[in-house]
Amino acid sequence: MINKIVKSTEDAVKGIFDGAVVMIGGFGEAGSPIELIHALIDQGAKNLTVISNNTGSGHVGLAALIEQKRVSKMICSFPRTSNSTVFPDLYAKGEIELELVPQGTLAERIRAGGAGIPAFYTPTSVHTPLAEGKENRVFNHQTYVLEYGIKADFSLVKCKAADRYGNLIYNKTARNFGPVMCTAAEITIVQTSRVVELGKIDPENVVTPGIFVSRVVEVSNPVHESKLVFENRTYP
């Protein structure tokens, strides 16, 4: 029998090891799997490389993981957002590494990683500092830059509903990086607002097919980062 449902966020993040590459879903707070990130803080893995669009805000979620000095490198497109001070401070002190990637290139590198595509050419960033040192190639009189597919050991993703096969649907713009990150990790860990019976998600409407998902944990009333930041909350 296939049952990807685990009992707790603690069980969900088991096995994440020191030095692991971890993709974390979310665009700003939308889709950020706060409860899984907090479980990862409790779990203790360190020296992580984290791939996520932003670097979190306030002192909760991804920002808290970074503040605990558990992340040695961030791969992201927009590390400097409002209420984001933890990453900028550590970066200014030279205590965390940054690989800056254009947002679409980041999404495509993850998609490629999940699809078994080692590299691809894109016009994005050609003739800019972000293309320096990268291979250029001309197709049909236009210059393209070589970018590599990217994979992770673990992905942490948030969704709205999941069944025990790991089929997922998302909520509005919280979908963002979730579906591609699910495809690109050895072990994909999902927190869902609701676990539903098999068949409850119309097969026509499944966004992430269960084959891409390893573990699912129900977090029925997920907290919102903006609310925690507004309340000046910290984690742990």
């Binding site: 497109s77 927009f78 590390p79 400097r80 957002t81 990453f87 900028p88 970066y91 200014a92 940054l98 800056l100 990637v101 254009p102 947002q103 679409g104 290139t105 894109t122 016009p123 994005t124 960033s125 050609v126 800019t128 972000l130």
Partner: peptide, 16 residues
């Protein structure tokens, strides 16, 4: 120097 570079989707938009 020292500023945190952030690019988001700007380079994708102008390229595409």
């Amino acid at each position: 120097k020292g500023a945190v570079p952030s690019v988001g989707g700007a380079m994708d938009l102008v390229a595409g």
